[in-house]
Design a protein around this nucleic acid. Sequence first.
DNA 1: ATGGTTGTCCTACAA
Length: 255
Amino acid sequence: MKIATWNVNSLKVRMPHLREWLARQAPDVVCLQETKCEDKAFPGAEIEAAGYRWIHHGQKTYNGVAILARAECGNVRRGIPQFTDEQSRVIVGDVGDTRIVCVYVPNGQSVGSDKYEYKLRWLAALRDWLRSELQAHPKLAVLGDYNIAPEPRDVHDPLAWEGQVLFSEPERAALKGITELGLADAFRLFEQPEKSFTWWDYRMNAFRRKMGLRIDHVLLSPALARSCTACTIDLEPRRLERPSDHAPVICELSN
DNA sequence: ATGGTTGTCCTACAA
């Protein structure tokens, strides 16, 4: 089974890229972030024509998450339980015997801002909930835009980024709190090229200059990590005209 | 040099 995550930064604008990418990569499950549309505006017919069922937790203008899958999603839920959130950032469903969690972690804006405090609160709530999800679901995958680079090698210029939002110590500690529940960063299960990133600022030719961060992740429970045979970043959609600022991450599971 | 780009929506805001 091939599972993937992609922050599309507006599903409406990125639909041609998504269609082409689905045909080329043929993933079984895709988690999308920043769909930026309400449920009633979701392009469901086009997604179905491409061969996918879908679930969506939408919102006007901002956020919005979806799961596309070859098979129907069961036991769907939206949002983190017992965490009141007006922003549409989490959708969950079972695909076969695997529980798929799609997350769009808050950006945090800048260290010390209200949005940064919200990000840390949000991550603490996610960790508390995932602890119980892991106990209930041996095959658990948590995919999405975490808006956190875990290590210096995940940042093009770690010295310049030290202490900045997306790479500050409290954010990295919060992500570590989640992986230490027993969720493996699939990308680091394998040898990878240097300067492997998933996001590049639209400005300053950051992509061409390889000035990126690895902030989109696939986290796997122990049972899934054992079955994982590859995890790669697909740079091709980022090279196209009018791209998303994020590249997709693709993960192969052998069962 | 405190810049610059994109998406949503029309004026700033979020990223």
